[in-house]
């Protein structure tokens, strides 16, 4: 026994004080930091609560003004607050039109680009083409607005005639919006295509399928949920996009299906109204919250659906 103790390491503790040494220490700093970090995480929750609360509160005020009737808001086709007409349909209609034009560009081109990049492109082609799409994605939307007004609109007027195409029109804004959204759709779709395992492609090639047949009949269906997710996100982006439509789609609500005519969208309306002298607690002020709430609701639902779909293909392949 005695000899044992002598050979023991000098810093070995005796059994009596071991429980003291191991006793839990209060680390106030550690707890404070953890609390602070948790608060940081909570700020995003507060943001959401803030959005829902403020949009909801002001929307309630809006709908409680005597001129505004909930049913008329959703069913009538004149938006003219100055004469007490609050029908949101003209704004929704032009939002839908610009969105559809944007998607006519972004969906086919985005998907085709994704197929090219994922299934055909050599390493070198990818390394040139992908950064170009990334640059396109990084250009501020106000610049796209400028592009729509100074390039796309004159181009459309040149093709269809200056008499037919107004300076402000939903088509020009929509098409440029499509170019803006194209990189988003292509990169999300490409992610979905790349997530399809190689073995599936090899199986198709092994059966004598050509590259096109493999891409279209095997890879594309396997990546479908991810591609649909990309489409939905693209739609959500188009609906929420403001600057392009504020610059190029026209200011002034108009209920028209003519793509060559100007018509203000929901976002364009919010931007125009709040850009002027906006007095608190007027129907104008409250109306941007009501339209904002509508916008928030639509995009939120689209985003949630899209994320569900992405989660689905990740679950399958990753």
């Amino acid at each position: 026994m005695a000899s044992m103790e002598i050979t023991q390491n000098i810093n070995q503790s005796s059994a009596q004080n071991i429980s003291t040494r191991l006793r839990r220490q209060t680390r106030i700093g550690e707890n404070l930091i953890q609390g602070f970090l948790f608060l940081c995480g909570m700020i995003s929750i507060f943001t959401t609560i803030g959005i829902v609360f403020e949009l909801g509160k002001e929307s309630l005020l809006f709908f409680s003004t005597p001129e505004v009737k909930l049913i008329e808001f959703f069913t009538t086709t004149t938006w003219q607050p100055s004469i007490g007409k609050f029908g949101v349909l003209p704004l929704v209609n032009s939002t839908l039109m610009t969105t559809i034009f944007a998607m006519l560009i972004a969906l086919p081109l985005g998907l085709a680009a994704a197929i090219y990049l994922s299934e055909y492109a050599s390493h070198k082609a990818r390394s040139i083409l992908k950064p170009i799409l990334e640059i396109l994605a990084g250009i501020p939307t106000v610049v796209y607005g400028y592009f729509a007004l100074t390039f796309m609109t004159p181009l459309l007027r040149g093709i269809f005639g200056e008499d037919n195409v107004q300076i402000y029109n939903t088509l020009s804004a929509g098409l440029v919006m499509g170019i803006m959204i194209l990189p988003l759709v292509s990169s999300m779709s490409e992610d979905a295509l790349s997530a399809v395992p190689r073995s599936l492609r090899d199986a198709a090639y092994g059966l004598g399928a050509t590259r096109l047949e493999t891409a279209i009949k095997i890879v594309l269906p396997a990546a479908l949920s991810g591609i649909i997710a990309a489409f939905i996100i693209g739609i959500s982006r188009a609906i929420g996009e403001t600057m392009i439509v504020a610059v190029a789609a026209g200011s002034g609500p108009a209920f028209t299906f003519n793509p060559f005519k100007g018509a203000e969208t929901m976002t364009g309306y919010i931007a125009r109204i709040s850009g002027g002298d906006l007095a608190y607690d007027t129907p104008d002020y409250n109306s941007i919250f009501a339209i904002g709430l509508l916008l928030f609701g639509i995009t939120l639902i689209l985003n949630i659906v899209s994320r569900r779909l992405v989660a689905k293909y990740r679950e399958v392949y990753e």
């Binding site: 929420g240 941007i288 916008l295 985003n303």
Partner: peptide, 12 residues
């Protein structure tokens, strides 16, 4: 979800 909220809503 917040990452997908349109910027104009943040403005409001």
């Amino acid at each position: 979800n917040l990452a997908g909220v349109p910027s104009i809503v943040y403005g409001i």
